[in-house]
């Protein structure tokens, strides 16, 4: 019996993980279905668009510009080992657009937006505001979840697009100011090298990561336990889950686009 105990624990952990995946899938399905059925709450959507999109611009911009600059330096230093310094514009462009732009924006959104959504909704649950919504004939999924998920699906691809541009610009500034690249040639190489499917894959990833970030925030907020500890745990779990799922989804989507 003692020998079987670890097996039992493993089984329980797997069953627990599968049950959690099932609950999150049902929750996500509910969120999408409520997004498409009236009543709609345009004011809530507008507030969510501003919070998730507009107010995330500074952090996304700063993350992208520093990453683009660092990437240019790294590629120049690495490329110098086999006389390939000239590929800096191409690698910065493809690295930012296909990989670093969407992933870093996704992770920044997970840190900034997922945590904020989870803490806000969890606090509303703890202070009975969600019960109050129900007694006021308002469905919490429609009023709280659907606008936030819709706003993330709309704004995160836009943020990824902006992050891509700023990241490439960061590489451009470092390459032309520090590494001696010709500005016009750098831009031409960047534009010539990028393909439409690079940009499409970036924006699709942004959409997926936005959905993941918002759904994780809403799910853990709605499932929060009692008190300050419950709010803290919901916030922490939401960010952990969103970050891991964003990286896993990135791997899957990269594989899908790679095979096309």
């Amino acid at each position: 019996m003692m020998l079987l105990a670890p097996l039992g624990q493993l089984g329980r952990a797997v069953l627990g993980a599968l049950a959690a995946a099932g609950r999150i899938s049902i929750f996500a399905w509910g969120a999408f279905s409520h997004m498409l059925r009236p009543p709609f709450y345009p004011r809530e959507l507008l507030v969510a668009l501003l919070n998730i999109g507009w107010l995330s611009l500074p952090v996304v911009g700063l993350t992208a510009v520093f990453t683009g600059g660092a990437l240019a330096l790294q590629i120049y230093a690495g490329g110098a080992r086999f006389n390939a310094e000239a590929v800096v514009p191409q690698i910065v462009a493809i690295g930012m657009v296909r990989e670093l732009g969407p992933v870093l924006v996704g992770l920044m959104i997970a840190a900034r937006v997922t945590s904020s959504i989870a803490a806000e909704i969890a606090t509303m649950k703890v202070t009975e505001q969600i019960d109050a919504l129900v007694t006021l004939s308002t469905h919490p999924m429609k009023y709280l979840v659907a606008p936030r998920v819709a706003a993330a699906l709309i704004t995160v691809p836009v943020l990824v697009g902006i992050g891509d541009i700023i990241g490439v610009a960061g590489g451009y500034v470092v390459a032309t100011e520090n590494l001696g690249f010709n500005p016009a040639a750098y831009l031409k190489n960047t534009v010539d090298f990028l393909e439409w499917r690079d940009i499409v894959s970036s924006l699709v990833k942004g959409c997926a990561f936005g959905g993941i970030a918002a759904i994780m925030g809403c799910y853990y907020g709605m499932e929060s336990g009692r008190g300050a500890q419950g709010v803290g745990r919901a916030t922490k779990s939401s960010v952990e889950a969103a970050a891991v799922l964003i990286l896993a989804a990135n791997f899957v989507l990269t594989g899908v686009f790679f095979s096309l």
Partner: peptide
């Protein structure tokens, strides 16, 4: 319904 803590938004 009047909630214990008010439950104001």
């Amino acid at each position: 319904m009047l909630f214990q803590g008010g439950a104001l938004f």
